[in-house]
Structure formats: C-alpha cells, structure tokens
C-alpha cells in the first residue's frame, strides 16, 4: 500500500509540475482532485474536532452543569442552513450577525493591543543606550517606524519636512519588501528541493 501511495504522490507531483510546460489534462485532474479532497478533508476534520468533540462530547460531560448552553450554538448553526430554503433564508443572517459581531468585538480589542499598543510600546525606548552600533540600531528602528507611519499618513500632502520623512519611509519599506521577497523565494525554493528530493530519492531511489 505504501508503494501505491508513493507512486500516487509522484504522479501528483509530476502532474502539477507539468503546468510549467503548459496547461494540460494531467494538471487539471490533479487540481480537481486537490479541490475535492481539500473540501472533504476540512469537512471531516471540522466534523470530528468541532461537532463531535466540542458539541457531542461536551453535551455528555455530566461534570459540567451548564453544558446545555452548547445547544444554543447548534440552534444558530441550524439557522445558518435556512439559507438553503429561499423563503426563510433571511434567518441565516442571525447566526452570521452573531459571528460577524463577536469576531469584530474580539478582534477590535486583540488587534488594538497586539498590533497597535504593544508595537508602540516596543518602539518607545531609550535610543542612546549601549555602544555606538546599538545606538545606530535603535535610531534606525525608531526613525524607521516613524517615517513608515508618515508614509502611510495621507491626510497631509507629502511636501517639505513631512515629504522628506515620507521619502525615508519609502526607503525603509523598499528594504522590507526586498527582504520579504528574498525570504519568500527561499521558502519556495526549499519546497521545490523537497519535491525533487521526493521524486529522485523516495520515488526513483537514485539519490544517495
């Protein structure tokens, strides 16, 4: 069975790589298989992890006297399915509204703390601390954050001193985009090496 699996994986890999030549039947088949199996995979995983473990086992947990509150989630979930019936489809907005509202409230606070407050807190620090290289590093960090923010501030025209700060912001952003690009290329190359290692090593066995 293992050998069938390795052959299947090898054919799937070749099928996807064949797209480099041109769009073809083998690639389309692999793509379609992936779409179907992914949908099935996530459905099964969510079914067991969420509906079975969270709800079914939770509702049977006699140690939790409030376990029946879980039913409310199921009621909202069933309302979501009313979208399939045209006349009462508008009821599906209720669970959707709950998800949207709860997520908005949750993210509003968590992102404000993690993305705004903590980042500001980490940036406001003594610059002239340590030796010269450390002072340069701290200056680059503080000035870089400030100028980056200035670049994204579009309520004032980027002219004069403000414009120069914005220009420094672009430089810092370009360095970041370059670094991110380099990182992405390396990660993709690493994946490519992994696939070639699989094809020539695990499948064909011609690698030492």
């Amino acid at each position: 069975m293992e050998a069938i699996g390795v052959w299947t994986a090898a054919l799937a890999t070749i099928g996807i790589v064949s797209f480099l030549y041109k769009d073809n039947v083998l690639y389309r088949i692999c793509e379609s298989v992936f779409i179907g199996t992914s949908a099935g995979y996530w459905f099964v995983t969510y079914f067991w992890d969420n509906l079975y473990r969270k709800f079914y086992l939770g509702i049977q947990d006699a140690t939790d006297p409030n376990r029946f509150f879980l039913w409310f989630g199921v009621v909202l979930g069933v309302l979501m399915l009313t979208r399939l019936w045209g006349k009462i489809g508008w009821l599906s907005r209720w669970p959707l509204a709950f998800v949207v509202g709860a997520t908005a409230g949750l993210y509003m606070m968590t992102f404000f703390v993690s993305n705004a407050m903590r980042q500001v807190g980490a940036t406001i620090m003594p610059i002239f601390r340590g030796n010269l290289p450390a002072i340069i590093d701290n200056t680059v960090l503080a000035v870089g954050v400030f100028c980056g923010l200035v670049y994204f501030f579009f309520s004032k025209e980027h002219r004069g001193l403000f414009g120069r700060a914005s220009r420094v912001g672009i430089w810092i952003l370009m360095i970041t985009f370059g670094a991110s690009f380099g990182y992405t290329v390396m990660s993709r190359m690493s994946l490519m090496l992994g696939r070639f290692d699989f094809l020539f090593g695990t499948w064909l066995g011609i690698l030492p």
């Binding site: 404000f112 680059v140 870089g144």
Partner: peptide
C-alpha cells in the same frame, strides 16, 4: 536588515493594520 529596517517597516504596517481593524470593527458594530 531583518532585525532593524525590516522590523521598523513591519511595525509601522502592523500599527496601520491594528488601527484599521479597530476602525472597521467599530463600523461593523
């Protein structure tokens, strides 16, 4: 590069995202 200029710009972007999410969440709520 990764620890200083890159981090500086990533922080500026993260602050923008954070404030953007707060504004969008408030509009939704």
């Amino acid at each position: 590069i990764l620890n200083y200029p890159n981090l500086a710009a990533k922080r500026a972007i993260a602050m923008g995202i954070g404030l953007g999410i707060v504004a969008t969440a408030l509009k939704v709520i």
